[in-house]
């Protein structure tokens, strides 16, 4: 059974590229352009890994992270952000993020991180 990955980013190009890259490796991928739609879907479906953008309008990546950690503790969260600085990284790490990448992120590295998340 293929692992299920959720990708959340408010930019279509990010979710599209992530979906095509991860499907290429055999993952089942669902994409969402907002934190709201992602959290709504999480109520219906279990995902092994959530890859989310940090900064989004409305429900942002930190809120997605908090919700996942509280309600779906088995799901790992990987954060990606265009606005990488130490504060955001620390904030994410305090929220128990599995991994944290500044954009542009090398797809190979993201895939390796997902593999590690699935092993744990």
């Amino acid at each position: 059974m293929s692992n299920k990955i959720m990708v959340v980013d408010d930019e279509k190009i990010v979710v599209d590229m992530a979906k095509m890259a991860l499907e290429h490796d055999g993952y089942v991928v669902e994409t969402f352009l907002s934190g709201e739609s992602a959290l709504a879907r999480l109520k219906e479906e279990t995902f092994d890994v959530v890859v989310t953008d940090f900064k989004m309008k409305g429900i942002d990546g930190m809120e997605v992270l908090r919700t996942v950690k509280e309600q779906y503790p088995k799901t790992k969260v990987i954060m990606i952000t265009a606005f990488a600085n130490l504060d955001t990284a620390i904030e994410a790490l305090r929220g128990d993020v599995f991994d944290f990448f500044p954009k542009p992120v090398k797809i190979k590295e993201l895939k390796a991180s997902i593999e590690r998340a699935l092993e744990k």
């Binding site: 980013d9 930019e11 190009i13 990010v14 590229m17 992530a18 890259a21 990606i80 265009a82 954009k103 542009p104 992120v105 090398k106 797809i107 190979k108 993201l110």
Partner: peptide, 13 residues
């Protein structure tokens, strides 16, 4: 290189 398809990038980049 960043737009070669090997990286996830966004408009901001």
């Amino acid at each position: 290189e960043k737009l070669s398809g090997e990286y996830l990038f966004d408009t901001n980049y």
